[in-house]
């Protein structure tokens, strides 16, 4: 059957329902194909251009708008976070310097109090020392007097025992001279 040429008169199918030649080249069917193709294409064009494409482009535009907005919002939040961090750091710094100031003040106060106390203590110690020195001086003086008196008496007695007449003035002078030595 391949040897048979297409029946130009219009029958494209043989008695058995098989194609004669290429069905694509059957001129009888072409108006039908072209008609329905045009119907389909025009319908499709109107559906696409009136409904589908504007809708999709609107959705895409809306999405890119949303994405842009979200990115801007994220950027803003990031800036805010950075600001907050800076403020926190500043607060931390302030608090630290404040604490240092307070520590320094407390130290100075304590130092001042300590100085006052030390002075007081020094004064007390000095007073006590002076008192003690005075007491020691008195005791020493008392002791020297006693020694002098004992030495005079002893000397008088010694002179008397040796049979001499005790010259009180001479003995006193002699004892005094010895005591100085």
């Amino acid at each position: 059957m391949a040897t048979e040429t297409t029946d130009a008169a219009g029958v494209c199918v043989d008695a058995g329902g098989s194609a004669l030649g290429m069905p694509q080249l059957c001129a009888d069917w072409m108006p039908n194909q072209i008609f329905w193709l045009l119907v389909t294409l025009i319908t499709l064009y109107f559906v696409m251009s009136r409904i589908a494409l504007p809708r999709i482009s609107a959705v895409l535009a809306e999405r890119s708008g949303t994405i842009t907005n979200d990115i801007a919002a994220a950027e803003e939040l990031k800036n805010k976070a950075a600001e907050a961090e800076a403020a926190y750091d500043q607060a931390l710094l302030d608090a630290r310097s404040e604490a240092q100031k307070i520590v320094a003040e407390a130290k100075a106060e304590i130092q001042a109090e300590l100085d006052v106390e030390l002075q007081k203590a020094d004064a007390q110690i000095a007073a006590k020392t002076a008192e003690s020195e005075a007491a020691i001086g008195e005791i020493r003086e008392g002791a020297v007097k006693s020694v002098t008196a004992v030495a005079k008496d002893t000397a008088k007695e010694l002179v008397a025992a040796m049979g001499g007449t005790a010259d009180a003035k001479a003995i006193t002078a002699a004892v005094n001279a010895r005591m100085k030595g």
């Binding site: 494209c12 199918v13 329902g17 194609a19 290429m22 069905p23 039908n32």
Partner: peptide, 9 residues
Amino acid sequence: FHPLDQFIV
């Protein structure tokens, strides 16, 4: 086989 029969309108 009729490989082109599928194209019959």
